[in-house]
Structure formats: C-alpha cells, structure tokens
Design a protein around this nucleic acid. Structure first.
Length: 426
RNA sequence: GUGGGCGUAGCUCAGUUGGUUAGAGCUCCGGAUUGUGAUUCCGGAGGUCGUGGGUUCGAGUCCCAUCGUCCACCCCA
C-alpha cells in the first residue's frame, strides 16, 4: 500500500459540512463593506520578500521567523503573504490608485505564517481586510470601526471588547520610546528575558507582556498618551467623540501596541474572552507613512484585518443563525422512462427557478433507499417520479418535514408549486 | 522555538497486571415491506491498532524515535 499523503501541518481543508458558514460570512462581509462604498481588490498570494520586509518591518516576529520564503526557478526571492495590507498598498501604488485620490477597498483570502498551530491559530488562515487611502482625518477612523461593529451585528455575534490607543507620529513615538526605555532600564533587573531582549530592539512590545512581574513594572511606566504630539492628541480625542456619538463602546488601552511596524496614530483591536488564548478577532490601525515608505507619494492610510477562522469559531459558539445551503428538494426517480423524464424536468426546473437547490437522484436504487437519501441530505421536499407518474405526466411532491400529505402535481405546474412551497419567486 | 495531553473502523470511543481470530454505538449498504424516508427488527461491509525500530515465546498494551493532533507559552488575526 502506498504512503498516505497528509495535508500540511496547520493548513486545513474546508469540508462541505462547514462550507455554509464560510459562504455566509463572505457574502455578509461583501454586503457590509459594499454598504460603505468599499470595493473589492484582490492581490496575489506571493510577492517579493522585500515588500514584506519593508512594509511589516525587519525586526518583527512575522518577518523574522514566520514567513514562508523561497527562491523561485528564476532566482527571485519570494514569500507567501503573511498579511494583506502590504500587497494592497503595492498594487495601489503600481496602478496609480493612490496618487492624489481617495480609495476605499476590501480584500479577502488566505495568508501564511509559520507558527506552531493551536486553537484559533493556523499556518494558512484567512483574513477579511478593509483599507482606506488618502484620508487623514479621524472621520475615517470612526468609519473603520463602525464597519466592523456593523459586521458583528449583521452576523449576530457579540461579546467583543473594543480597545483603542494612539501611537502618535513617528517623531512623538521616538520621544516616548526614549522615555519608556529610560524607565524600563531602571527596572531592567526585574524584567523577564524576552522583555530584556526587546528593550534594545522594540521596547513598545514590552508593554503588552503577559509576564506578571513585567506587568507590574509596566503598570507604572510612562503613558504613551501623555507623549502624543498636539495634532495626534486632537485626532484621538475626535475619534473618541465620534465613537461615543455612534454609541460604540470602547476602552482606551495605552498599552495596546501592534506587532507590525507600520502603524501610526490610531490602533484598535476587538477581542473576545470566548476563544481561549487567541482572543484577537479583528485588529488594525492607521499607517500614514506606509505608502511613501513603499515608494508611493505620501498618502495616509488606515485599515483592519479580521481573522475569519476565529470569527467563524465565534459564530459557532454563539450559535448565530447561518442560512441553509444544502439541497431543498430531492428528486427521486425510477424506471427507464421516468428517469429520462425526470432529468429533463429537473433541468426545466433549474431554468425556471435558478436559485432552487435541487438534487436529482443518481445511481438508481429503490424508492425507499432514495427517500432515505432525501431525508439524510436535509431536503425539505422529495419529488417522486416513477413510471406511474410518467404515464400521467405528474410528479408526487412529498414533504419530508411533516407539512401535510403528498400531492400529485402536473409537470407544467410544478415550478410554480415548488416556488410557493420553498418560498421563492418564480 | 519551549512545555504538556492524545493517536484503535468514515465518526465518537471501549480494550482488564502484555496472552488465541480487536469490540460497541453512530454512519453506510442490503433485507423484512417486488413504489414511500425519518421509528423497529435482521444481515453485511468497513481496522497492516499513526509510522518505523526495539524488548519478549508472545505487543493495541512496555521502551525509543518519528509524524500528526490538541492545549498552553510565545506570537497574532
């Protein structure tokens, strides 16, 4: 027997039983984003490694140890995308979408990070991503957060905490970073090893350490919000007012920093206490310097990403309503003449009711066995066409869910009858 | 990258201190009912016990390695 080939660790198949939630999430998301005037933009899964190094940041964990990087046959150094923003910005610059104009776009697809898998964390996972360019004011920041809030509401999920913070401008952050480093150095002996290492490379990251001893020190550390430049402070105040005005609850968390280097001013994160350790479902922020950093004209930008696997886990946990997507009607057929007639009739029904989900029995079998399949696939109705029905040009319509006795319907009336039963317009 | 739990049928799991042909429920297929499912009854199919070594007269059971999976650290969506 040959060796069984398994899927790559941390990369999952999406099986038919779970496909319904994904389709639902994608269609609701497209509708919500479209409702704010955002249009879809798709970018390749593979880009030059250099793009991610520059966009995400050299010293971030994502770039340092989590990227799938390889040389292609032409010697080009490429990487599977670890996030969507970098590619979107690259595409925007390349096609002139960001030159002196406003753009609102969304994207969706797989991203890759080489991490140890666990609940809510996979090596191939999927993000929904929303980005706006050319808009510097806090009004778009508010819009971003409102979009996410509306998506939660439309999906019927709740229990999130929204945390917001401001990282200021690169200049104000440099000042704050110096003040923070001074403070942490004076307590260096009590910090954990990871934090000591970060002191030199990325001291802001010490702020969200989970080590209790470090947390105690961080609690008394200088507050980034006290070190904002005047304009960033006004921006942040306007954001808070705007969220209040929309009735969106939030918490200010001055220790909220992001793992990617490109953020400026507003950062935010929606978390939940229902998913274990991987509790961030949606995170994002403003990145006013990124477009210029990647070679475009200076253009402000802001965006967020949603972890689809995590959001879908929440939909499952909270038993949010997901529309049925399996067959509604199962067509039973037997006898040579009847089988051919049923095939033609099924095609005709699909002409007349394009949204009807009709499964035509194949592979023969006795009527009893066919009805068993009909029941098992979750269909609401069975159509029965044997030689008796073929002779009279009728079909028996039988409810499988206790909605009355079977009725006999003539072929010409069938589509209208079904449309009524299933609740769709003919 | 670090630490711990777990790998027996398609699924969920039993399997006594190592001892003949490895079990159950669900699912699937067939029959009881030669044209009526979801209930019941009967029958059948389905497993190199994750993989590779080792100990032993004998390994699903013990040892080692390896892969996978789950949870946490870490990281982040």
């Amino acid at each position: 027997m040959s060796q069984k080939i398994q899927s790559i660790r941390g990369m999952n198949d999406l099986l038919p039983a779970d496909a319904g939630v994904w389709q639902h999430l994608q269609s609701v998301a497209a509708e919500v984003f479209g409702g704010y005037g955002y249009r879809e933009l798709r970018v390749p899964v593979v880009e030059r490694t250099e793009l991610f190094r520059r966009a995400v940041g050299e010293v971030t964990d994502v770039v340092e140890k989590e990227m799938y990087t390889f040389d292609d046959r032409g010697g080009e150094n490429l990487s599977l995308r670890p996030e969507l923003t970098a590619g979107i910005v690259r595409a925007g610059i390349e096609h002139g979408l960001l030159y002196n104009q406003q753009q609102r776009v969304w994207s969706c697809g797989p991203v890759f990070r080489y991490e140890r898998p666990q609940a809510g964390r996979y090596r191939q996972f999927h993000q929904l991503d929303v980005e706006a360019f050319g808009l510097a004011g806090p009004d778009v920041d508010i819009e971003m957060i409102a979009i996410a809030a509306r998506l939660w509401q439309r999906l019927g999920v709740s229990g999130f905490v929204l945390q917001i913070n401001s990282l200021g401008t690169p200049e104000s952050r440099t000042q704050y970073r110096a003040a923070l480093t001074d403070y942490l150095r004076s307590h260096e002996h009590a910090l954990d090893e990871d934090s000591k290492r970060r002191l030199g490379s990325n001291p802001l990251r010490v702020l969200d350490s989970k080590v209790p001893a470090t947390r105690a020190i961080v609690a008394a550390a200088p507050n980034i919000l006290d070190h904002l430049d005047a304009e960033s402070a006004l921006h942040f105040a306007a954001l808070k007012r705007g969220l209040d005005a929309l009735g969106i609850a939030f918490e200010v968390n001055p220790r909220l920093v992001r793992g990617l280097d490109y953020y400026t001013r507003t950062v935010f994160e929606w978390t939940t206490d229902q998913l274990g350790a991987q509790d961030a479902v949606c995170a994002g922020g403003r990145y006013d310097g990124l477009v210029a950093h990647l070679g475009g004209a200076p253009t402000p930008g802001i965006g967020f990403a949603i972890g689809m696997e995590r959001l879908i886990a929440l939909i499952g946990l909270q038993q949010a309503v997901v529309p049925e997507h399996g067959p509604q009607v199962y067509f039973c057929r037997f006898g040579a003449q009847a089988e051919a007639a049923a095939a033609a009739l099924a095609e005709q029904l699909r002409d007349q009711l394009p949204s009807l989900r009709l499964l035509l029995n194949a592979g023969g079998g006795k009527l009893g066995a066919q009805l068993k399949r009909a029941d098992a696939c979750g269909a609401r109705y069975a159509l029965i066409l044997g030689d008796d029905e073929a002779a009279t040009q009728t079909v028996q319509v039988k409810s499988l869910r206790g909605e009355g006795e079977p009725v006999s319907i003539g072929w010409p009336e069938l589509s209208q009858h079904l449309a009524q039963r299933v609740g769709m317009s003919a």
